[in-house]
Every structure is written in C-alpha cells, then in structure tokens.
Design a binder for these strands. Structure first.
Length: 545
RNA sequence: GCCGAGGUAGCUCAGCUGGUUUAGAGCGCUGGAUUCAUAACCCGGAGGUCGGCGGUUCGAGUCCGCCCCUCGGCACCA
C-alpha cells in the first residue's frame, strides 16, 4: 500500500525575546489542529510533520541578555523554553522545535548561502543608507525623511554611510514569482493577502541586502557568518527563513519538502511570499504549496497594546482554559479566529455565546441526552441498530458522509472553521431527529407495543452513532474532550485509523451493539454570561455586614 | 499621497459572471411546543430603504458614475 502523501506544516519561528501571547498561541494552535486533522485523514501519524521553534539570532538577544546579566545563549534557552512550555500547556503537539542557534540549523545555512554565492544570486556590493551613529543602526529612506534626517533618539544629524554588503538578486526572480502566483491561486492565502502581494509586485523589485557587518560590538558578533567572509554575517531574517528547510534537510525527513503550508501572521507576509520563494527558486528547490497569512486578534474590539493593558497573554488564556476547559478555548480560537482576510475579536461575551451554543448546548448536551436515554432504556448497553423509520431529512449515513467530504475539502483550502462546523451540523441534525422521533415518548409504550422497543433501539443507536461521527470530526480541535467522550462510550479509536473508516456512519469503527455506554460527566458545563471574566480581579464586593 | 478590500437583519457574515423565490444563514432577542437532556433541544416570528445620490436595462445588493464612511498594504520592519 502506498504511504500517504506527506503533509508538512510550519509555524513561524517566534522571536525569542517575546513573551508568549495569544498571537503565538493562536498560530500554533491552528497548526496543531490542522496537523491532527491531516493525520486523521491520512490514518498515519508519521505522514504529517508540524514544525515550530524560535528565531534567536537578533541583535537584541545579545543586548537583552547583557542587560539581564546573562549570556545570549542562556537568555535564548530560557525564552525558548517558555515558548515550548506555552505550546505544550495548550496541548499543541509539535513534531519538532527548531532553534536557529542549534548546530543542525546554523551549520547548514552557510551551505545554502555558498550555493547562492556560486551561482551569483548573492553577490558582494556596497550598501548606502542613513546611519544613526548614536544608535548604530540604519534608518530607511522614509524613516530618515520623516525624522528630518536627524536621529529620532538624540537629534543628531544622520550621516550617509556606505559599507560592504551582500545582496540577493531578488529582482531577477520577479517575473517567475509573478507567474507562479498567477498560476497557483492557492499559493498565497487568503485572497486578500494574495492581492496585497500582487499589488506590490507591480513595482520593480530591488535586490535586497542579506548580510550585516560584524564589528567590535558584541551584538554584531551573534549569528551566522557569511561563508568565507567573517567580517559579515547573514542577516537574521534570511537565517531565520531557512529553518523550514534545514529542519527537514536530513535523509529521514527529506520527503517532507516542499512544505504543504507555511502558516504565518500577516506582518511577515512579504518575507514568506516573496523573498523566501525567490531564495528557493534560486536554489532550485521546490516551493511550498501554500503561504497562509492570518490576521490579528483584537481584544474587546480594541487593538491590543501594552499601553492599553488589554493584551491577551498566556496567563489570561490559562484562566479561560481553567474556567471553560482548554478545549473550550481551543474551539473558540479555531472557529472564530482571524483566518479569513479580516481580524477577529476576542470578546468575552462572544466567547460565552460560542461556548454555550456550540459546546454546552451543542455536542455536550446532545451527547448527554443520548447517553442518558441509552442508560435509562437499555441499561447502558448500546442497542441493536435495526431499521429506524426512514426519514428523508435524517439519513445519517448520507449526512455523515457529506460532512466528511466537506470536512476534507475545507481543510484542503485551510478553512479550519468551516471544517469543524461540519461536526456541529451533524449535532444539529441529531437534536432535530430526537425531537421528530421522540424516543422518550416511545419508551413509554414499549410495554404494550412489542415492536416499539426495536424501534427505540434503532433510533437511539442512530443518534449515538451520529454523535460519535461528529466527535471524530471535532477531535483535532478538542482532543481531550473527545477522548473523554470516547472513554465513557467505549469507542476510543485505535491509533492510525483513517478518517474514512472512523467517520463512516455504521462503518468499521461504528459503535458496537452490546458494548456499554455511561452517562459520564457533562462534557461542557453551561457558562454563565454574568460570571466574572476569567483572569481579572473581581470588583470589590459591597460590605456584607 | 499611492495601491487594494469592504460597507446586506442587534451582532458575525452568505449572496459567482444582473431577472428561482415575497433578500438568506448562524448567534442574540421574542412567541409557542416539549421533557430524554446542561432552564438545554425543536418549531414560528421579528419585516433589514441590501452606505447615499444619479444612471444603464424590460429588470440591479448583483453593471456604470459621483459622494460619504470603515479597514488593510506601501519593502528590509522579527
């Protein structure tokens, strides 16, 4: 049997000086859910590879470390661990965590640069720009003009300065890139992002500097040296981009390239949609299939900023997870997140609405009423399917099949929310079916009517089996809660079972008549909209005496 | 300033190349039904000038022009 097509998905490598917040966590959670879904579809966990990690060669790592009496490496170690711990705490199961300071990365980068030097795609030239001597940094032409050619920090005049620098022939790849984007509509997604890039590609691309000088300043000695020229180092962004390739540039992992998806935030679109593909073209490496640039979360309708104090940090996310379960939080992020062109709002009221509608009143309540009836009317033993009355609107074999097809199609175009909503559709149908068939009424007639018991069995089996299928589709979003449901229903799937088998109503993984079902605890407790917002200090209560 | 996206029910949005509906969905709200379930679920309703004005057409959220408003991108920035 041919092994399933490999699926390689990446998150950005995060700037190691940051503290993990909703932005980093969101990107990684989406990648995790997508990877879980792809493993499910392929039925082979090794077929999918999720990479995340940290970007550690920025100059600021050196200065921050010094300011905290630490070494750059120790400083990076500490922060990289914070990211790793954050993602683990959100149940994001990455297959590898790459750090750009690791030998397996930094030792490979010079090889790619050398190849580009050999072909002439990277060449030595001179860089001229406005230099702020006090800050020891260049300002862009625009920034310099806006500052009236004076240092924005100390007001001293900027100076035109020239120094040796290596350039990448970005301009040489403009037409090929344009042709590729036009020929592959899904290369840059969502469409708004694609339009942005196409718009900017209408102007002529300049070659770009890909090195920085090494001086006496320790901050400039951090990073990867240009091959054969220790007076220059590889610009941190170029170094960083190569992580996606270095990590799988090994004999065992080579088959994962090209990546299926580079999932990124919209801020780094240009690097991923233009510079990175051009570098790959120059190296004659295959291009990733999709660059997906998601938007931002805003908080209660306001842009998040440190000055407003409305940043949703890891602590706040943990508070939500504690209050509504980690999977409740994941569900909100995954189904309401800024994946389409627009930014999304993390509002408490909306969180409660979605949580109650989809989870507490949705799958939670539905699973509860179904299992309760099986316990009540069949002593918790899964009844025999039999033939339920054929209702045209409630052909669950067809409903589940359609949901699965849509699920896979949505995931292929990276419409995560649409995929998971397929499961909610099934639940909606089950709730409707229960109302139409009213098994609870039927149960009262079984004494007098011998066929009623069979009919009741058929109805409840249908409901339970449909809920099971929905739970399979939801599992990549909510692995823990769905596992809990499977545990009480005795239908935990074997490892590496294909979606096609798992999600087939009455298929090879169907609920087995005769196995037992417990009522179990409520999967998702209903949330009170009036309760205090998690992670905030409650307002002082009025004196009680 | 330049380039681009968009303004449709309280909210979030579907409505592809104009005439299948009297403009739809989900959530919220409200009336009813029901009791297996987490006061959950099911059914019905609310009648939104489809941003404004003008035009093309037998016929326009759906095409054209003008105006108002919102938002995104503008290159080395992680």
């Amino acid at each position: 049997m041919p092994s399933p097509a490999p699926y390689y998905i990446t998150t950005p490598i995060y700037y190691v000086n940051d503290r993990p917040h909703i932005g980093h966590c969101y990107t990684t959670t989406v990648a995790d859910a997508a990877a879980r879904a792809m493993r499910l579809i392929r039925g082979e966990s090794r077929s999918t590879f999720l990479l995340t990690g940290t970007d550690e060669h920025a100059d600021k790592v050196v200065t921050s470390a010094a300011a905290h009496n630490s070494t750059p490496q120790a400083w990076a170690d500490k922060h990289a661990d914070a990211f790793r711990a954050a993602f683990t705490s959100l149940n994001c199961g990455f297959d590898d965590f790459i750090r750009t300071t690791e030998p397996r990365h930094k030792d490979k980068v010079p090889g790619y640069i050398s190849a580009l030097l050999k072909t002439g795609d990277i060449y030595k030239g001179v860089y001229t720009g406005w230099y702020d001597a006090g800050q020891e940094e260049y300002l862009t032409e625009t920034a310099a003009r806006e500052a009236n050619f004076k240092s924005p920090i100390n007001g001293k005049p900027l100076v035109q300065r020239t120094e040796d620098c290596y350039f990448f022939k970005l301009g040489a790849y403009q037409e090929r890139l344009l042709a590729h984007i036009n020929a592959n509509p899904h290369f840059i997604q969502p469409d708004a992002r694609r339009q942005e890039v196409l718009g900017r590609l209408r102007q002529t691309l300049n070659d770009i500097p890909v090195s920085r000088p090494v001086t006496d300043d320790p901050a400039t000695q951090w990073g990867v040296r240009m091959p054969g020229d220790p007076a220059n180092r590889v610009y941190v962004w170029i170094d960083a981009l190569f992580n996606y390739y270095t990590t799988v540039d090994t004999p065992e992992r080579k088959h994962f390239w090209p990546a299926a998806v580079h999932l990124i935030g919209k801020d780094i679109l240009w690097f991923h949609a233009v510079i990175w593909p051009a570098l790959l073209m120059a190296l004659n490496f295959p291009l990733p299939k999709m660059i997906f640039g998601h938007g931002w979360w805003v908080s209660e309708g306001q842009k998040m900023s440190k000055s407003l104090g409305n940043f949703i940090d890891l602590e706040r996310m943990h508070a939500y997870a504690d209050a509504f379960s980690l999977d409740g939080l994941r569900w909100y992020l995954l189904t309401q997140g800024p994946l389409s062109g627009q930014d999304a709002d993390f509002s408490h009221a909306k969180f409660i609405e979605v949580y109650n509608a989809d989870l507490a009143n949705g799958i939670g309540n539905c699973a509860s009423r179904v299992s309760n009836m099986i316990v009540k009317y069949f002593d918790g033993v899964v009844p025999t399917p039999g033939n339920a009355a054929a209702l045209p609107d409630y052909d669950f074999k067809a409903i589940c099949a359609k949901a699965s097809v849509e699920y896979v199609a949505a995931l292929d175009r990276f419409d995560i929310a649409c995929a998971f909503n397929q499961a909610s559709e099934i639940i909606r149908k089950v709730d409707g079916y229960i109302n139409v068939t009213a098994p609870f009424k039927l149960a009262k007639t079984v004494e007098a009517n011998p066929t009623a018991k069979q009919e009741l069995a058929a109805i409840l089996y249908t409901c339970a089996e449909a809920v099971r299928v929905a739970s399979v589709l939801m599992a990549p979003a909510m692995p823990q809660k769905m596992a809990a449901l499977w545990s009480t229903w005795n239908c935990t799937p074997g490892a590496d079972t294909k979606l096609a088998d798992l999600a087939a109503f009455g298929g090879p993984c169907a609920l087995k008549p005769g196995s037992t079902v417990a009522k179990g605890d409520a999967l998702f407790m209903r949330a009170d909209p009036a309760a205090p917002i998690p992670g905030t200090i409650p307002a002082p209560s009025a004196p009680t005496v």
